[in-house]
Every structure is written in C-alpha cells, then in structure tokens.
Amino acid sequence: MTLPKPPKGNRAKTIITILVVLAIFVWAFAGISFNGIKVTAWQTVQSIVEGFTHPDWGYVWTGEGEDLISLLVETLAIAILGTIMSSLLSIPFGFWAARSRGQRKIVSSSGKFVSSAIRTFPDIILALLFIKMVGPGSFAGILALGVGAIGMLAKFYSESIEAMDHGPSESVVAAGGNKGKVLFFATLPQLVPEFLSYTLYRFEIAVRYATILGLVGAGGIGTPLIFALNARAWDRVGIILLGIIVMVTVIDIISGKLRQRLV
C-alpha cells in the first residue's frame, strides 16, 4: 500500500487545465443576462415558505377525480403503461443491437446507432409531438414514455443478450432440442430476470418523467401543478410537490425490493 505520489512535473498541465476550465466558466457566465430576475423574488420566497408549511390538505382527496390522489394514480398509470409499451418495443431493438455470433457487424452497429439516437431525444419533445398527433392528455404521455425509453432499454437488453451464457443453449441443442426449445429452456430463463430488473429500473425513471409530462399537457399530476404555479397558489404547489416526493420515494423502495429479489 503506497501513498499517492505527489504530482511532479505535470504542474504546468494542471495549471493549464485549471485555466481552461476557468475560461469556459467565465465564457458561460458572461453570456447570461440576469436582467429578468424579479425584484419581488424575496417576497415570493416568503409566500412559498408560507404555502409549503401550510399545504392545502383539502386537495388531497375531494372525490371528484381532480384531486391529488386521483392524479397521482393517473400519473402512475401513465408510467406503468409507458414502461410496458417500451419494454415490449425494446425487445426487438435489443436483439437488433446485440452482437451475436455469425452475424455481420453492420447489423448490430446500426441497431446501436438507432437506440442511441432515440436516447438523445428529450422525452418532453416526444410528448409535444405526440400531443400534436393524438391531442393533449394521458395517452400522448404514454406514447412519449413508451417510445422515449426504447433508447435506454434496448441498450441494456442488448448488453445482457451479449453477456448471455451459451452453455445452456448448447446443452439443449445437444439433447436434441429445436430452436423453440432453445428459446424457452435456455434463452428466456436467462434473459427474463435481467430484462425485468432493467424494466423496473426504467419504471422508476418513468414515474419521475410522468410527473413532468403534465407541464406540457400530456396528462398526470403536472397539469394541476402548472396551473397552481401560474395562479401562485403556493399551498397547493406545496401539497402537490409533497405528493410527488412521497409517491416517487415509495415507488423507488418497492421497485428496489423487487429488483433485489430478481437478481
């Protein structure tokens, strides 16, 4: 066990790096205009604190379907359907992007390119496009999550396909099994737990995304949040944020436990 060597000789390099980072920082700073900041910001902060410490508890449940719990359930439903849709769509993409034996490299690299192209796309832009196609509402949100997650899931899926152990499938072939038997007794039992684990992980992210879809009109809890923000109804903003925090935390815990059982 040795102590890390003191930096010698590359002091000039360190100084240059620091200068470059500083220059980038100054460049970024100089170009931002801070004119738009409201002078009332401090009062706003005070009323926010006031609102957050006295959340609008009456909004939690009104029984009319436009309350916190109903909309959180709707948000969750968007995340569930979006994730299921994307996990189904990602399977073919995953196999496409996976490098397998006896196959040209161009096939898998084109698959990798397509999934990384989808990954680049912010989900909100997809939501905006789907709103134009199917109108505002939850359905547009589901489609956005369903397509947007392909990029990430296909990458994970293809990686676990590439890392798959070929022993079991060779044994099935050696025992006289056909392609269907290989699929059911060797390939799927290996891949399904991993796929499910990644899908659950993606579901945790989808729940977070589903809360913001409403900001652009794609359903869920984001819609009343943006209304409350525009109306400066801080007590309502407070209760909605509280609801989101609780929901995301609970989902993370449940999904984490499920993932531990899978792997």
Binding site: I37, L215, D252
Partner: peptide, 28 residues
C-alpha cells in the same frame, strides 16, 4: 439530498420560473 433527487429538473425549473421570473436564471 434524497428528497431533492425525487423532484425532476423540469418541476424544479417550473417552480423557479415562478419565483425568479422568466429567464435563464431560473433554469440555471
């Protein structure tokens, strides 16, 4: 820190736009 990480960026931005007004500062 755990609570901060449950709130998506865009939600934070929406809140800060309401506080500081429209502009890049809220986003930063």
């Amino acid at each position: 820190n755990n609570i901060i990480r449950t709130i998506p960026e865009l939600l934070l931005a929406a809140v800060f736009v309401a506080v500081f007004g429209i502009g890049p500062f809220a986003g930063i």
